[in-house]
Simulated scan of single mutants.
Amino acid sequence: MSFVITWTTEFETGIDIIDEQHKRIFEYLEEIDHAIKTHNADEVEHVIKSLIDYAISHNTFEESLMEKAGYPMLEPHHQVHEAFKARAKSYSDRLVQGEDTFRVAREIRTDIGLWLTNHIKRDDKHYVSFVKRNIEGGFVARMLGKFFR
């Protein structure tokens, strides 16, 4: 059974660059699903590595916005991201250790998909208004101006 979560407007934060990065993560999940359906183990492994690298990089970027805005809940949010990184690394380790590629991929597709949707709707939505409010008119707003709407 296929389980892919797709991007909808309910996941929009209103910060264009963040929304584009989140959409790309959803696309990676769809690519994993496609690779599973075509039984392409090499593609599965490539997409999993790309997804994990991209998601970790996105989390770091997101934290940089929060830090520049003086977001008071940055440290708890960072800890959530660190837990995600550890979980993602455990999937990579399982692949390296020779565990069934498709089983790991199906777990990632579901687990990361559910984690992502919950994280965006709960944790990310919490920082958005603060980041927008505290960045508007400042240097970061001018730097990222085109990414806000």
Rank of each mutant, 00 (worst) to 15 (best):
101 T>N: 10
100 D>G: 09
95 L>N: 05
127 Y>C: 13
105 A>N: 09
118 N>V: 03
100 D>M: 13
131 V>E: 03
98 G>R: 07
43 E>R: 09
82 E>W: 12
80 V>R: 11
120 I>M: 13
116 L>M: 03
105 A>G: 10
73 M>A: 13
57 S>W: 14
90 S>I: 04
90 S>F: 07
65 L>R: 04
98 G>I: 09
70 G>L: 05
66 M>R: 01
80 V>A: 15
128 V>M: 00
85 K>L: 06
57 S>K: 06
71 Y>I: 00
65 L>M: 10
70 G>Q: 13
96 V>I: 12
100 D>I: 10
64 S>N: 02
75 E>Y: 12
85 K>N: 10
62 E>Y: 05
127 Y>E: 07
123 D>M: 04
93 D>N: 08
113 G>F: 11
119 H>C: 03
71 Y>H: 07
95 L>H: 02
67 E>L: 06
73 M>C: 02
128 V>I: 08
74 L>D: 08
101 T>S: 11
105 A>M: 07
101 T>E: 09
46 H>E: 12
90 S>Q: 15
80 V>G: 11
121 K>P: 05
100 D>V: 11
48 I>G: 00
47 V>L: 02
128 V>C: 03
74 L>C: 04
79 Q>P: 02
119 H>D: 03
44 V>H: 02
119 H>S: 02
77 H>L: 10
56 I>H: 00
43 E>S: 09
126 H>S: 00
99 E>Y: 05
73 M>V: 01
114 L>K: 04
86 A>L: 12
50 S>H: 09
83 A>L: 12
67 E>C: 01
83 A>Y: 11
90 S>Y: 05
123 D>A: 15
49 K>P: 03
54 Y>I: 00
116 L>N: 08
59 N>T: 06
70 G>W: 06
60 T>P: 00
108 I>D: 06
78 H>N: 06
109 R>M: 12
104 V>Y: 04
126 H>C: 05
52 I>V: 12
67 E>I: 04
114 L>F: 05
86 A>W: 09
82 E>V: 05
131 V>C: 05
73 M>W: 07
97 Q>Y: 11
102 F>M: 12
72 P>N: 10
88 A>W: 08
48 I>F: 01
87 R>N: 14
112 I>N: 02
111 D>C: 03
41 A>S: 13
79 Q>H: 15
91 Y>M: 12
92 S>M: 13
131 V>Y: 07
80 V>I: 10
131 V>D: 02
58 H>F: 11
91 Y>W: 14
125 K>A: 07
94 R>Y: 10
97 Q>L: 14
103 R>L: 13
63 E>T: 02
62 E>C: 01
106 R>E: 15
43 E>G: 01
84 F>W: 12
74 L>W: 11
51 L>C: 11
98 G>P: 04
111 D>R: 03
41 A>L: 07
